[in-house]
Design a protein around this nucleic acid. Structure first.
Lengths: 189, 189
DNA sequence: GTCTATAGATCGATAGAC
DNA sequence: GTCTATCGATCTATAGAC
């Protein structure tokens, strides 16, 4: 039966939000202890390698979420168009309709790309590859499917940046709608 | 006549590269002293408010570059299509064909958005507004011009993220070419 | 203007009691 | 498992000689 006290697993989402706010090097252990309510002793008990291991746990958690809610529907939906629709719905949900940034995308910039290179690379290559396959099953040619997938994944990232720069989540919502139209219309050419 | 010793103005580009590598909070003064060869005394002489003033100087420098090399051609070219072409050339040059990140975009994420909010917002709103105007002069309707401009600016940011996540600058180059085609083709509809 | 020396705070991480 | 106390390193910023 689940215990009341926090387990390692329960802390990870909160760690994710903290890293999203301050970045990796901008996040201090004191901030983490304050926000989680856990002392350093507990934190180092859960994550013996400290801050780096906490960030890796968050990235793994993100990867699992996308595998379940984004990649699996793209792969398993019999109608590829339905899979793509589910992808856009999951993306909109995950990024709180533009109010939440993509931690993996943010980690791709700066130094953090090198510190977490494998996980950062895997996240984006899984996404583009899975989406490419879905677009091909929906009738697009190899090259067009690959290009469209790259466009969509990149545009989602860029829309998050732009929305946050303007402090206007609607920028993201609008972009997502246009991308979805393009993905579906493109498949009917 | 120009002096041999570094002036404030000469340090700024190097500061920009350091911030691009480590981010704002990840950049330490000791890294700056090593890379610039200047002691803390000199640095605080040029930038009395320390690291924050250095970052602001870099953002102002970026704004000036884009005003001259991106926004002015978009505004002043008699043929709007030529202005757009010049924009894409300048963007490709500025981001070293995908090997350099956008510091303003990176600052839009995390906390730094709030610390440098005005400059971050101004950079992107200038860009989208100027590009929107050029697209309208090229025959697009108000709404379509605005949406296309937003798409292009966001996609450039996203392509930089994606390219870096894959450690493959060609992702950026390909995206830029597709965007340019879209911008020009779109104007002939 | 440029340097060294150093203040004072905070960093990540560890030790050890309970 | 969770806490407090604390280590040594590093941080930003300042002071003051030259």
């Amino acid at each position: 039966m689940p215990r009341e006290i926090a387990e390692r697993h329960d802390v990870i989402p909160m760690l994710g939000e903290i890293f999203r706010e301050h970045g990796f090097s901008g996040t201090s252990l004191s901030e983490i202890t304050h926000r989680t309510g856990l002392g350093k002793g507990s934190l180092y008990h859960f994550f013996p390698n400290g801050k780096k291991e906490m960030a890796e746990a968050v990235l793994d958690d993100v990867a699992t979420w996308f595998e379940t809610n984004v990649f699996a529907p793209l792969r398993k939906s019999k109608d590829p168009e339905l899979g793509i629709k589910k992808m856009f719905e999951a993306v909109d949900r995950y990024f709180y309709s533009g109010k939440r940034i993509c931690l993996v995308g943010a980690f791709a910039l700066y130094n953090t790309r090198d510190q977490f290179g494998t996980k950062v690379n895997a996240y984006f290559s899984s996404w583009t590859k899975t989406l490419t396959a879905a677009l091909k099953r929906n009738g697009l040619g190899t090259r067009e499917a690959r290009e469209t997938a790259e466009d969509i994944v990149a545009s989602i990232q860029g829309a998050l940046v732009l929305a946050r720069s303007q402090d206007d989540p609607m920028v993201f919502t609008r972009a997502l709608k246009r991308l979805q139209n393009r993905a579906v219309v493109g498949s009917h050419e």
